[in-house]
């Protein structure tokens, strides 16, 4: 038993994948607490899906896919904010428009590149192909996101809980919303390698939703969420190592859903 846990650790690619899963899991779970509590799940879906055209465009034009992904995510956020700035357009539909437009643009660009198979990893994730430079990007974005969340913790908490009071004190709830969207875009870029553009939302929503069921303060929610993401990520990774039929991205997401289901059944109703 112990041997079968230790065996994959001999492989450099597996250790890199494990590190990436743990770092990204914690980052996404902490960000996810805000995503879930502020009902931003749909926006986060739009941001993560819009990574697709960004990465494909970067490959076609020959610059860093991470920059392409970040640019596309920021473009989506800005576009949605602009569309929703009119009273008669709800934020919901603005986000829906941007999500579908960006994703369709991505599919059109993929056709230009003339090779669908290259992009399977982008859509569905390929954690085993995480290289040292990917790990560096993941580590850096995690550092930026977690430092940002820590430094702005009291303002983000206040703005998420009582926007009016934040405005009254001058704690800029509107700015906090923009900061949060930017951090979600950064976090999404860092974990697109792991679970793919289609499933990245899952890492934001599922662990944090588990945390919300179990935690009674915001730090507790983040801690439970991180625990759930790390456990799900590690188990999912081992699972896809021993059962190659299970793709790693899907395995990670499914294993994150198990603690959620357990918490849903066990946690006392509030």
């Amino acid at each position: 038993m112990l041997e079968s846990l230790r065996e994959p650790l001999g492989e450099a690619f597996f250790v890199r994948a494990l590190t990436a899963v743990v770092i990204s899991g914690i980052t996404c779970a902490c960000l996810g607490a805000y995503v879930v509590l502020r009902r931003m799940a749909f926006v986060s879906t739009a941001l993560t899906h819009s990574i697709l055209p960004g990465v494909v465009a970067a490959m076609l034009l020959g610059f860093s896919p991470y920059l392409g992904a970040l640019g596309a995510a920021l473009l989506t956020a800005a576009g949605a904010a602009w569309l929703a700035s009119r009273r008669d357009t709800s934020e919901d539909s603005a986000v829906g428009v941007m999500l579908s437009v960006m994703f369709a643009a991505g599919i059109a660009l993929m056709q230009q590149a003339n090779s669908w198979r290259d992009f399977a990893g982008l859509l569905f994730g390929s954690v085993v192909s995480v290289g040292p430079e990917d790990l560096l990007v993941i580590g850096l974005t995690a550092a930026v996101v977690l430092t940002g969340l820590r430094l702005l913790h009291k303002e983000l908490e206040l703005a998420s809980f009582d926007e009016e009071y934040a405005q009254l004190l001058g704690a800029r709830p509107g700015l906090m919303r923009v900061v949060l969207l930017a951090l979600v875009a950064l976090g999404a870029v860092s974990c697109v390698r792991l679970v793919g553009a289609l499933l990245t939302t899952a890492l934001f929503v599922i662990p944090a939703a588990t945390g919300v069921l179990l935690g009674r303060t915001l730090p507790q929610v983040m801690a439970w969420g991180s625990a759930c993401a790390v456990a799900g990520g590690v188990v999912g990774l081992y699972l896809s190592y021993y059962f190659p039929a299970i793709p790693s991205g899907a395995g990670i997401v499914l294993c994150c859903a198990l603690p959620y289901l357990a918490a849903r059944l066990i946690a006392p109703r509030r």
Partner: peptide
């Protein structure tokens, strides 16, 4: 009051938010 429903926050923390007025970023 327009408070986010089911936000994980204890009453003590809510009252403590009043001290933010004397702090800053």
């Amino acid at each position: 009051p327009h408070l986010t429903a089911y936000f994980p926050l204890r009453l003590r923390r809510l009252v403590q938010m009043g001290t933010y007025a004397h702090h800053g970023w």
